[in-house]
Amino acid sequence: MVFFILIIFWACVLSLILYKVKSGEIAKWVKLFRILTVVFSVSFFAYWFIKKSAVAFVDNSVGLQVVNKLPQTLDFYLINVNKVDKNSALEPKHIGKIRPEYYRVEYLKMDKSDEYWIAGYLGKKNLVYFSQHSVPNKNIDQIVEVQNYINQSMKLSDAAKKQVDAYNYENTKLGIWITLDFLLLFLNLVLLLRKNK
């Protein structure tokens, strides 16, 4: 994903630089490159947004329903604990903000895992809920009702907090690169359409 975003960024930058080439034998190849860059970029982002918007059904997964019974809206993260050899790899995922008396459904791929954690934030940095859950039977869906502000393990919640912070940092970086790509793509599209007129 990041690889393609960087390729699009540099291709769009090169397309903007090559905009000045308007005559000569190379002008046809430059125009073709610019058109292909715009078409590939639009296609890639269209595919990516459709994929992100689709419901994330996973084969052989466990359904998880997180219900917020607290009087405040909390921002929930799911941390899947994968067993890799003898070590554990933590995979965070943002469930989203859940209002009081509402729920969200996620699908967990549990082929390398039998445990997950749920972290609830009030604001950006204030961890007010943490729970650890095991999955003894992977054929039964899970329901977690968040009814009070608890932290079941300070040690595990600290590890979860670090993973969530790293996850949010990576998403922020990705968001900046995507914004730059959109800006450059828009400029390239405008210049292409203006030239065609």
Rank of each mutant, 00 (worst) to 15 (best):
D165G: 00
N139D: 15
L180N: 08
L185Q: 06
Y121W: 02
I118L: 13
W177I: 12
Q132C: 03
I118H: 01
T172L: 12
A159I: 01
V128P: 09
N168C: 04
G123D: 05
Q142A: 06
L108T: 07
N168W: 10
Y149V: 07
L108I: 02
K109N: 15
D141T: 04
I140S: 05
V164K: 04
Y102W: 13
V135A: 06
T172E: 15
L184C: 02
K125T: 08
K125P: 01
I176T: 14
I118C: 01
K125A: 12
Q163C: 03
L156K: 11
A160F: 00
A159E: 05
Y169V: 05
I178H: 04
T179L: 14
D181K: 10
K109C: 03
S131N: 11
L156P: 02
A166E: 12
K125R: 12
K155I: 05
G175Y: 08
Q132Y: 07
Q147W: 06
D165S: 06
E145H: 07
L185V: 05
N151R: 08
Y167M: 04
I143C: 05
D114C: 04
L184N: 07
Y149W: 08
N126D: 15
S131A: 11
L156F: 04
K112V: 06
K138P: 09
S157G: 04
V105N: 12
N148Q: 13
N126F: 03
I178T: 11
Y102K: 15
E145G: 00
Y103W: 14
G175T: 14
N126E: 15
H133N: 15
F182Y: 10
K124H: 02
W117T: 00
T179V: 12
K155C: 00
K124N: 12
N148S: 14
E170F: 06
S157H: 05
N137L: 09
I176V: 11
W117Q: 08
A160K: 00
Y167V: 07
W177T: 08
N126C: 05
A119K: 05
Q163T: 00
I118N: 01
W117A: 00
L156S: 06
Y116C: 06
A160L: 01
V146Q: 08
N171A: 11
L127Y: 06
M110L: 15
Y169N: 14
K124P: 06
M110Y: 11
W117H: 09
I140T: 15
Y169H: 11
L127I: 05
E106I: 06
K125Q: 12
Y167R: 09
K109A: 09
T172W: 13
F130H: 10
E145D: 05
Y169Q: 15
K125E: 14
G120E: 09
A119R: 03
N137G: 02
S134V: 13
V146I: 10
F130M: 04
I176N: 09
Q147I: 13
D181M: 05
V135F: 12
Q163W: 01
M154G: 14
Y121F: 13
N171Q: 13
L156T: 00
K161Q: 01
K155Y: 04
E106Y: 00
G120L: 11
M110E: 13
A160V: 00
Y103C: 08
S134G: 14
Q163L: 03
N151V: 09
Y107M: 07
L127D: 10
V146A: 01
D111W: 09
A119Q: 05
L174S: 14
I143A: 03
E106L: 10
V135Q: 03
Y121Q: 02
F130P: 00
D114G: 14
N137R: 09
L108D: 04
L184G: 04
I143E: 13
